[in-house]
């Protein structure tokens, strides 16, 4: 008991010192300043904002309905043909409209899956890597188990037990994608925890949680941000494979990944069916990448000198 108290006391003191040394407001101002100085990152952010605005305000940018407006006499129009900016799909629906409405689902799925799996994966990876020993063995074997489950079985089981909905799609995808973050984080932690300043921090008696999140995490953000930005695209595509398996809530609802996979038989006949949603996903991932690069540089303590 008394030991614990002593440690806490020390910690409190250290906290105060820490706060004094680096005021929080300054830190964030610094990050924002560094980020805005990075032109590519800002362009990425602007692109992202444009995409979000287009999708969120979809009805403002199109007069068509994405679902009920099928026109069997206007099948597979090329971009520009018959007043359809991006043409029509195999059921005569306006692709531009479906792209805008579809972005709502796809962006939410892609970003939510990434955030959840990154949060869970990073936390587990930090703990495993930092504590080592039995904790690590248990956690890492657990990730081994999660990785080796056939994705299809998980999807079918979740669908059967919880029912199809976008929330469950996100859940299923998060369940299968967090181990990647765990392994990546742990690998980084193993390397970083050997560094002198971490050792000195623990010798100085910093709380473990504090060392993990304030000292180790920022130093392994680089690869994690890359994994996260790239996994947004992966999640959008995987959501499509889930809707093919029956996890998707509504097959008629527009979704970028679903648009892509439904166009697969038209690669020769009407390639715009696949390339258009492909470009939409690419642009999203690209802007995320640029934002990610900017964030990495802005957060990276070494770049901040």
């Amino acid at each position: 008991m008394s030991d614990n108290n002593k440690v806490n006391e020390k910690d409190r003191v250290m906290d105060e010192i820490g706060l004094e040394a680096l005021p929080v407001t300054n830190y964030w101002q610094d990050v924002i300043r560094l980020f805005t100085k990075n032109r590519i990152a800002v362009i990425g952010l602007i692109m992202m904002i444009i995409i979000v605005v287009l999708c969120a305000g979809a009805p403002l940018f199109t007069s068509h309905d994405p679902i009920t407006e099928m026109n069997f006499s206007e099948l597979l129009f090329r971009p520009g043909q018959g007043g359809h900016i991006l043409g029509t799909d195999d059921l005569g629906r306006d692709i531009w409209t479906r792209l805008l409405y579809g972005g709502r689902n796809s962006l939410v799925t892609g970003i939510a899956v990434t955030l959840i799996s990154a949060a869970v994966g990073i936390a587990i990876g930090l703990v495993a890597g930092y504590f080592g020993g039995t904790v690590e063995a248990l956690l890492m074997r657990f990730t081994d188990i999660m990785l080796s489950f056939p994705f299809l079985i998980i999807a079918i089981a979740i669908m059967a037990v919880l029912g199809p909905s976008q929330r469950n799609v996100i859940l299923a995808l998060a369940i299968v994608s967090w181990p990647r973050f765990t392994r990546l984080t742990r690998g980084q932690v193993l390397q970083i925890k050997q560094l002198e300043y971490i050792e000195s921090a623990s010798v100085a008696g910093f709380k473990k949680g504090r060392i993990m999140f304030n000292h180790i995490l920022p130093n392994c953000l680089g690869p994690l941000i890359i994994q996260a930005t790239l996994s947004v695209g992966g999640a959008i595509l995987s959501a499509a494979s889930l809707s093919y398996l029956g996890l998707g809530a509504d097959a008629a609802a527009p979704d970028w990944g679903v648009m892509l996979s439904q166009g697969r038989n038209y690669l020769q006949l009407a390639p715009h069916l696949t390339t258009i949603p492909g470009i939409a996903i690419s642009l999203t991932v690209l802007s995320m990448n640029w934002i990610g690069d900017g964030l990495r540089d802005a957060f990276d303590p070494k770049m901040r000198k």
């Binding site: 595509l237 892509l260 492909g278």
Partner: peptide, 17 residues
């Protein structure tokens, strides 16, 4: 960066076909 973006944004069946 562009390669990476395209690499993760288009499904494998697309590349394959």
């Amino acid at each position: 960066t562009a390669l990476a973006t395209i690499g993760v944004s288009l499904p494998k069946f697309w590349f394959g076909l």
